[in-house]
């Protein structure tokens, strides 16, 4: 038996919004420690890694490890049927071929359940080693989203250049070029607005805007984001989901032809 309950359906909706741009379907691996998902987008350029801890749920039970392959468009249809403040319970029997979503309104006057067929998906797990990154940038997630949106008007790629002075985002194309520089801040009063850089050595890498913009769909999950870069490994964009887990996106860089 698997059963996971969240007081707010809105949180699950935000998690789904954060992955459905990149993935059409995904396998949710459930164990007694929580729910994990690792999947590449169809072009295998980026990878999504989601972790939701068992103790982040209001109720969590997983008697046997279970992999639930879900079509995310179908899951979106079902979650649209919930109000954000409805409680959601996700349930499945061991070896089940379907999953049930139960939505309960705050006053319990309305209870609805939706059953969805599960899919058998090919599991393609990648081994991702622990990496000591050359630089890790912590910044407001809204600012990162704004920068990606603004720069994608100029070109298909963004160059991210991190030095001890700060981080520079650049893009160029037919209409011209754009540069956004962020300096480290020391605003202790508003910690959530700070930009901080842990730098071992300067790094400059080029990334496709399209994927960065998809990653920023996770912005409603967290007011902070971290960007981790090293010269010869993919960028890691991480959003902590408060009290529940995290979502990480990996993006392979572009290289000079």
């Amino acid at each position: 038996m698997f059963e996971a309950r969240l007081v707010s359906s809105g949180t699950l909706k935000k998690v789904l919004d954060a992955i459905k741009d990149l993935l059409n379907e995904a396998s949710f691996d459930c164990s007694d420690t929580g729910i994990q998902l690792q999947a590449m987008d169809s072009s295998h350029v980026s990878l999504v890694s989601l972790s939701l801890r068992a103790d982040g749920f209001d109720k969590y039970r997983c008697d046997r490890n279970l992999t639930m392959g879900m079509n995310l468009a179908s899951m979106t249809k079902i979650l649209k049927c919930a109000n954000n403040d409805d409680t959601v319970t996700v349930k499945a029997q061991d070896d089940a071929d379907c999953v049930t979503f139960v939505f309960e309104s705050k006053k319990q006057e309305k209870i609805s359940d939706y059953e969805m067929k599960l899919m058998n998906l090919d599991q393609e797990h990648l081994g991702i080693p622990e990496t000591d990154f050359s630089c890790v940038i912590h910044m407001p997630s809204g600012e990162f989203s704004r920068i990606c949106r603004d720069l994608s008007q100029f070109g298909e790629s963004v160059i991210i250049s991190c030095t001890k002075e700060g981080v520079r985002f650049s893009s160029s194309g037919d209409i011209g070029s754009a540069n956004i520089k962020l300096a480290q801040t020391n605003n202790i009063d508003k910690e959530e607005e700070t930009v901080s850089i842990d730098l071992q050595e300067p790094v400059t890498l080029t990334f496709a805007c399209q994927y960065l913009n998809s990653f920023t769909k996770a912005t409603p999950l967290s007011n902070r984001v971290s960007l981790s870069m090293s010269a010869n490994v993919p960028l890691v964009v991480e959003y902590e989901i408060p009290d529940l887990g995290h979502i990480r996106y990996y993006l392979a860089p572009k290289i000079e032809e």
Binding site: V45, H125, L126, I128, G155, S157, V233, Y250, A252, K254
Partner: peptide
């Protein structure tokens, strides 16, 4: 704009 690398250029299937 450079050529795009993929996840398999960095990580292996397990």
């Amino acid at each position: 704009n450079g050529s795009q690398l993929g996840m398999s250029d960095y990580y292996v299937l397990i």
